[in-house]
Design a binder for these strands. Structure first.
Lengths: 197, 197
DNA sequence: TGGCACTAGTGAGCATTGTCACTCTTGGTA
DNA sequence: TACCAAGAGTGACAATGCTCACTAGTGCCA
């Protein structure tokens, strides 16, 4: 199995590669530390992609979406420290191969990758319970919360997305209520915690 | 070198162990996934401890302190995703062997461990800039910014730290100016980026 | 054609936030 | 003792943020 790895922490990437190198049927052919490098490295002759979700310049989910837009069909297994419903929902929507958590036993990783390569889907057990709750935020609210999270004012957000300040106000107000928060910052934090951003 | 590992994410622990197993002079003799297990596993015949700082039930710094109270003298190397001045200060105070970041090159890990075993101290380069007291924020401003970052209101912050809302307002205003920001969120972001929080 | 749902935007009113000038206390210290 | 500096707190004011009720435009469809 030719494997591509995507992970922004070099030490972890190296360690995982060394773990997988123990398997006779797995060959790590490409290691990328960022979304940009992964895109630049394409096209690749790989059978499977193992990717940490959170990269410095984006997420592995963005990369999966980009690949699908390019018409590329390669199974991808996500890896993350966190079980976030938002990530899970996007992974499901993109029909990815799996979503594993970093607290899984190391011995099982290779076997899970083989299962995905054979066509099965592998989702970590703690994620099973998160299957239902989906993102209550609209795409607009998501965008606006991300900008608010960066400390931008209503004015600045309005300019950024070419909307009136009033619209931004209402949009934020709605997001705050949906996240049951008291202000935009708390709303953004809760949304990010839940993986909705 | 007999090595003890402390890391709460099994996959990462297994991967790191597999990476270090490639070194002929390193033998991983003990793997613990929590502070409680590490304490229970003691006494150990080990030459060096490699520990992730943040464990589920405490920190590796707590373990180092506990060991010193037991009169145990074993060098410890901390590992973390984050370069936090608070951790660094405690690591220095406890005179630990090193503090490495997970974005370091995997090939260098073993060599760094050997250096620490030989008596040297190894602190990741990004931590060097946190060494000097160039932090413009007072300890109060730091505390208040951390609470503001969590979306807390002036009122809530005042209650948390037992100060008047007016004082919190002034303190935040001062922090905002020092960080050359436009509001508390931007100030907190800049401060965190600079490693001041 | 009228009704309906959805999206964009406005305005009023109130709360919170940020700035600034000020007072009061406390602990040195000349 | 008198003075000074630092820290804590207040009050006033403007800017910004949040909520809510509202209008207007658009597309759908029976």
């Amino acid at each position: 199995m030719r494997l591509m790895m995507l992970e922004d922490q070099s030490l972890i990437m190296g360690a995982l590669a060394s773990l997988l190198a123990l398997e006779p049927d797995i060959e790590v052919v490409c290691q990328c530390s960022s979304l940009a490098k992964a895109k630049a490295a394409w096209p690749q002759q790989v059978d499977l992609i193992l990717a940490d979700i959170e990269l410095g310049d984006g997420t592995a989910l963005d990369f999966a979406q980009w690949l699908q837009q390019q018409g590329v069909v390669v199974p991808m297994v996500l890896l993350s420290t966190f079980a976030r419903p938002g990530y899970l929902a996007r992974a499901k929507a993109l029909n990815l191969g799996g979503y594993l958590l970093k607290d899984m036993p190391a011995e099982q990783l290779a076997q899970q990758l083989r299962l995905v390569l054979s066509g099965q889907q592998c989702f970590a057990r703690p994620l099973q319970s998160l299957m239902q709750p989906n993102n209550p935020l609209s795409e607009r609210e998501r965008q606006v919360l991300i900008l608010a999270e960066q400390g931008k004012s209503t004015q600045q957000i309005a300019l950024s997305i070419h909307r009136s300040p009033g619209w931004v106000r209402n949009c934020l107000s709605s997001a705050i209520q949906k996240m049951q928060a008291n202000n935009r910052i708390e709303a953004a934090l809760r949304a990010r915690d839940a993986g909705f951003l």
